[in-house]
């Protein structure tokens, strides 16, 4: 016992006790499945017959699958549209609130409500709002004189923008709350110093607020991108990937292949692609953060 403690540290016994539940659950439901997903992606497996090893077949199929190409393009469009929109709007709202405008608590809750709302419910509500014949949105559009109202979810052109709008609606408050907390973490003496230096409002924003906010911006960027890549429930309810796969995205495609077509290997391969993309983006962001993130020391 003394020897074990010498090798593994004096608290090893207690550590095992305190970590045991976490370790078991983590191993069973995270560690093993990650490794398993990797191996399953090299098999054909429909769950009814035993899996067969097919090497890289799933991956080469993905490469030549025209729908998968479209899925990747849709996912990229979705990410590129939602991330800047929700971050930009969230930052603007946070900057405005941080001026000490009255009702800060009210706005914080009001903007954050969509973020705690079930995405399924939100998607249902917005499907109704986007309803091309009786929905509130088209009613509003024709009231202000738009003749050719879009058919939104039924249109290959407008379905994706509709999904993007709902996603931004849901996530703006999250970005705002994080930005607001970041703004309130900036030391007031920096602004006092800037005021003594006669800096104008804009130059204070540009030279103090934004640089000092960059750790928050970095964090919001990372989680926004990762979150956007995982869009699923909006597509599931609003469009079911349609029309004509116009809104099919990566996670929906994984779901479709895994749980509708029972192609576990093929779905796992797509999931590994998602994993690789998320890892790559995280790594790129962490390695380039020195160029634009300033930590207050």
């Amino acid at each position: 016992m003394k020897k074990i403690r010498r090798i593994f540290g004096k608290d090893i016994g207690a550590a095992l006790f305190f970590l045991m539940p976490a370790l078991i659950l983590f191993t069973v439901f995270t560690a093993i499945p990650v490794v398993a997903a990797f191996f399953i992606s090299f098999t054909h497996w429909d769950l009814f017959r035993p899996p067969t090893w097919v090497g890289l077949d799933n991956y080469t199929r993905l490469l030549h699958d025209p729908i998968f190409g479209k899925v990747m393009k849709n996912t990229a469009i979705f990410v590129l549209a939602t991330v800047p929109l929700q971050m930009g709007l969230g930052l603007l709202a946070a900057l405005a609130l941080n001026r000490g405008i009255r009702g800060q608590t009210f706005f914080r809750v009001a903007y954050f409500l969509p973020a705690v709302t079930s995405t399924i419910a939100a998607a249902l509500v917005w499907s109704w709002l986007f309803n091309s014949n009786y929905g509130l949105i088209n009613a509003g559009l024709s009231m202000i004189g738009v003749d050719n109202v879009p058919k939104w979810l039924a249109s290959t052109k407008w379905a994706m923008p509709a999904v993007i709008i709902v996603s931004v609606w849901q996530n703006v408050g999250y970005a705002m709350v994080l930005f607001l907390a970041g703004l309130q973490n900036i030391r007031a003496d920096l602004y006092d110093a800037a005021a003594l230096d006669n800096a104008s409002g804009w130059s204070r924003l540009w030279h103090i607020t934004l640089p000092m906010l960059s750790p928050t911006t970095f964090f919001v960027l990372v989680i926004s991108i990762i979150g956007s890549f995982q869009v699923f429930e909006l597509v599931f309810i609003m469009t079911e990937a349609g029309p004509a796969n116009a809104t099919n995205t990566l996670v929906y495609y994984i779901y479709q292949n895994g749980f509708q077509f029972y192609q576990m290997g093929y779905a796992s391969a797509a999931a590994m692609i998602l994993f690789a993309i998320v890892l790559l983006i995280t790594m790129v962001q962490y390695t380039t953060q020195n160029r634009w993130v300033h930590y207050d020391t």
């Binding site: 093993i32 399953i40 779901y255 749980f259």
Partner: peptide, 19 residues
Amino acid sequence: FLMALMVPPQVTLIPNFIM
């Protein structure tokens, strides 16, 4: 444990379902 935060839940979905 921190790295597990980076694993999208959809990656472990299929093995977990099978298990």
